[in-house]
């Protein structure tokens, strides 16, 4: 019991529901740290049960929380120069995203987050690729075909520009209300990674998925720097290895799931349409070039990301 009292508590907060791959990978994270027996006890809090979504970063910075699963949106709020990763069509696919964050750009990003925000990124995981999901089937070839579509999106300036890129009218709405809103027609569609669409059973109230793949989203295993600095080298090694393992497990699970969901949705009678993304990419270039957000971005970063193979 005395040994247990000396254990360091590591609480990790996450917005994903317990059934999601990210939350499940946190259980693995917990278990690997426990089996390393280095005097650290991890506890996972999925579904924002400890801190609300979007409030974890200040909690980390104030020493009220040890770890969270942080998104690029949360980083850009404090480091607008790195807001590029919230841009539609910045990553071609999962592999491209992986290569960017595993390469020199990722190293610079982690250094900036560490130096300026006081948060260490231990591992980068895959949150999914966002796709457009429509209540009524439409023939979608270009963003113009989505004109006037009331699309549920999170609130915020980044999402407004993203909505413009897709050609839709963004409507901010809480996730629990999305099902009813789709059913009744308050909204015409929503956009999310397929695993979220599937978990929320939105296939029951929609007819079509258009594979716009507009945002390939990374998510970070982030730890408060003051807490991190207090750990022994042995503890750091165990925690960081556990994070990398968990991230890998999340990625493998989610990639497999995304592929399977496409077939499952088709079996449920939805039409899942792969489309030519060129018109969407062109509009993205245009709408971001004219946007205030892009003025804050690090110069030359876009080019470097695009050139990453």
């Amino acid at each position: 019991n005395q040994a247990a009292a000396a254990d360091i508590a590591l609480r990790i907060s996450c917005a994903a529901p317990p059934s999601d791959f990210l939350a499940r990978s946190l259980e693995t994270f917990k278990a690997s740290i426990a089996s390393a027996k280095v005097g650290v006890v991890a506890e996972a809090y999925p579904a924002s049960s400890l801190f609300r979504q979007g409030t974890e970063v200040p909690a980390l910075q104030r020493g009220n929380l040890e770890m969270s699963t942080m998104t690029t949106f949360e980083v850009a709020q404090q480091l607008p120069e790195w807001g590029l990763f919230n841009r539609a069509y910045i990553f071609r696919d999962y592999t491209h995203m992986r290569h960017v964050f595993d390469g020199p750009i990722g190293a610079e990003y982690r250094k900036a987050v560490s130096d300026k925000m006081g948060i260490e990124i231990l591992a980068t995981a895959y949150l999914g690729t966002r796709q457009v999901n429509l209540r009524q089937k439409r023939d979608v070839k270009t963003p113009a075909d989505l004109a006037g579509v009331k699309m549920r999106m999170p609130a915020g300036p980044e999402w407004l520009v993203l909505g413009r890129t897709l050609g839709v009218s963004p409507v901010p709405l809480g996730m629990p209300e999305v099902y009813l809103a789709l059913k009744t027609g308050t909204i015409d569609g929503q956009e999310n990674p397929l695993s979220i669409l599937n978990a929320a059973k939105l296939y029951e109230v929609t007819q079509q998925v258009v594979l716009t793949s507009h945002l390939v989203q990374p998510v970070f295993f982030a730890i408060a720097k003051p807490f991190w600095d207090k750990l022994s080298p042995e503890q750091k090694k165990a925690v960081s290895e556990a994070a990398v393992t968990a991230a890998r497990e999340n990625d493998e699970g989610r990639l497999k799931d995304e592929a399977e969901i496409v077939n499952a949705l088709k079996a449920k009678g939805l039409s899942v349409d792969a489309i030519d993304l060129a018109p969407f990419r062109t509009l993205a270039d245009k709408s971001y070039a004219g946007s205030d957000l892009a003025k804050d971005w690090n110069a030359g970063l876009l080019k470097r990301v695009v050139e990453t193979q």
């Binding site: 801190f51 609300r52 979504q53 979007g54 409030t55 200040p58 909690a59 104030r62 020493g63 009220n64 809480g174 629990p176 209300e177």
Partner: peptide
């Protein structure tokens, strides 16, 4: 723990519950 957590939980709780 930080007594400021009372502010965090209260305000963020109300702020994020549009319903």
């Amino acid at each position: 723990q930080d007594p400021g957590l009372v502010v965090d939980q209260t305000m963020n709780g109300l702020y994020n519950n549009y319903l």
